[in-house]
């Protein structure tokens, strides 16, 4: 049985990472697109920005966020001694 304080620290840090990840998710899933009409008056590399964010921008953010999340969670698992043996 593993030491309880390490487990508590692991779950606390896991929860904060989840909150940060879902905040990024929320902004690029909902907030940005709520203001699509306004963003469309800005041009980004030729695109109307509101259209761009829906067609490509949010998706790129999602991919990058996930690879970052995987690394961050790995680090938490290792720091707290609960990572799996490879």
């Amino acid at each position: 049985m593993m030491d309880t304080s390490k487990r508590e620290e692991h779950w606390r840090r896991t929860k904060s990472l989840m909150v940060v990840t879902l905040t990024i998710w929320f902004i690029f899933s909902f907030v940005v697109h709520w203001f699509a009409a306004g963003l469309n008056s800005v041009t980004f590399a030729g695109w109307p920005l509101g259209f761009y964010m829906a067609a490509q921008g949010s998706e790129i953010v999602f991919v990058l966020t996930l690879f970052w999340f995987v690394r961050a969670q790995d680090k938490i698992d290792r720091d707290c001694g609960v990572a799996e043996e490879e």
Partner: peptide
Amino acid sequence: VVGWTGGYILVASL
């Protein structure tokens, strides 16, 4: 397109 990609953030984190 947004919905069918962003859902994976929920799959991975939750």
